[in-house]
């Protein structure tokens, strides 16, 4: 079956912050994902689905249900760990990183996994049937309208996100497996809040608004019409940009381990965190990690003040310490003042 064409990521008009945030997470999946806030019709879902085309290939243990990374034994699932402990070779295979979608209506058993009923009835044995969290390991977990997710499903996401492990103790099964995923959520703030704890698990956040510039709006419509008329032809037209971006992402991934920052930037990040009264340490840590990723994306091996500034716009807004429904915005002058001092 021929796969339906997807609107190319590079053909999305404007929305630079959102695009950057998504790209950074592909370069470094440990950044903690993105929360995209915005009204309906601001290309939120289009962007996330389009991202799939740009995702790099992964090296995984062949046949492993969780796509364990042969190079990272710390995150092995039980089966891979057992094989490794027994000194057995772990065959490798290449596969593409994917976007796994978690629908708002998903039930808890589908998310965490459950007892394989068929197996139990046929063979009288218990077997774990992996859920979406298993599928999401080393992939992108995408939740559209994440603010509408059932509370208990949010709990489960928090549990998994906290340590990168999904622990299942339900319906007769006791099982745990790695669940490290890039969490991408979209929400329309008019339809309700998102719990602060879940908010905190997002590394980056962006607020998207519709384009206001008339010429840009016209461009949006033009491209959309062209795409709908002939998706394949449209995609072909953007192939060059797509390839270039994919290559740039790959290059950045290779550069990232060698990208460095100096002590002064670390101190400044800490100072910003203290000055803005953020909760905990995730803000400063993510600020530096994001700055490093920005540097790698720009083809550099040294993060600069400017990288930290760009990172700050994505890292800080959702991390201010605030009481429930207290309104606070980032004091950007202060951030600038500290960084430029």
């Amino acid at each position: 079956m021929k796969r339906k064409a997807v609107y190319p990521f590079t053909a999305i008009v404007g929305q630079e912050a959102m695009k950057l945030a998504l790209i950074l997470n592909v370069i470094d999946p440990s950044l903690g994902g993105v929360l995209i806030k915005g009204e309906k019709g601001t290309a939120k879902s289009t962007a996330v689905r389009a991202l799939a085309e740009l995702l790099p290939a992964l090296t995984a243990v062949h046949g492993c249900r969780f796509r364990c990374d042969p190079a990272v034994p710390e995150h092995f699932c039980d089966d891979c760990a057992a094989l490794a402990a027994a000194g057995q070779p772990l065959p490798e295979e290449k596969m593409k990183m994917r976007v796994v979608e978690l629908p708002v209506s998903a039930t808890e058993d589908r998310v965490v996994g459950t007892l394989d009923i068929e197996h139990a009835i046929k063979h009288g044995e218990k077997k774990f049937e992996p859920g979406l969290l298993a599928e999401a390991n080393r992939n992108i977990l995408y939740v559209d309208e994440i603010n509408l997710l059932d509370d208990h499903v949010v709990d489960v996401l928090l549990d998994a996100a906290a340590m990168g492990v999904n622990t299942v103790e339900r319906e007769g099964v006791s099982y745990s497996h790695p669940a490290r995923f890039v969490l991408v959520g979209t929400m329309n703030p008019e339809e309700g809040d998102i719990r602060p704890q879940l908010l905190d698990r997002f590394g980056l956040s962006v607020t998207v608004t519709g384009e206001h510039e008339p010429s840009q709006r016209v461009e949006v419509i033009k491209r959309r019409l062209a795409y709908e008329e002939d998706p394949d032809a449209f995609c072909r037209r953007w192939e060059k940009e797509q390839t270039q971006l994919a290559e740039r992402i790959m290059a950045a991934r290779q550069l990232l381990p060698r990208t460095e920052t100096d002590d002064e930037l670390l101190l400044k990040a800490a100072e910003v965190a203290v000055a803005l009264q953020v909760d905990g340490h995730r803000a400063d840590i993510t600020l530096i990690k994001t700055a490093l990723t920005v540097a790698a994306f720009e083809g550099r091996t040294q993060a600069t003040k400017e990288d930290v500034k760009r990172a700050a716009a994505l890292v800080l807004p959702h991390r201010l310490r605030r009481l429930p429904f207290e309104e606070k915005t980032v004091d950007w002058d202060k951030v600038k003042e500290i960084l430029d001092a």
Partner: peptide
């Protein structure tokens, strides 16, 4: 031993 929030009673107490 991690106790997940989604635990069911049978898995907590035994069954």
């Amino acid at each position: 031993f991690t106790l997940p929030l989604s635990i069911t009673e049978d898995m907590l107490l035994g069954s």
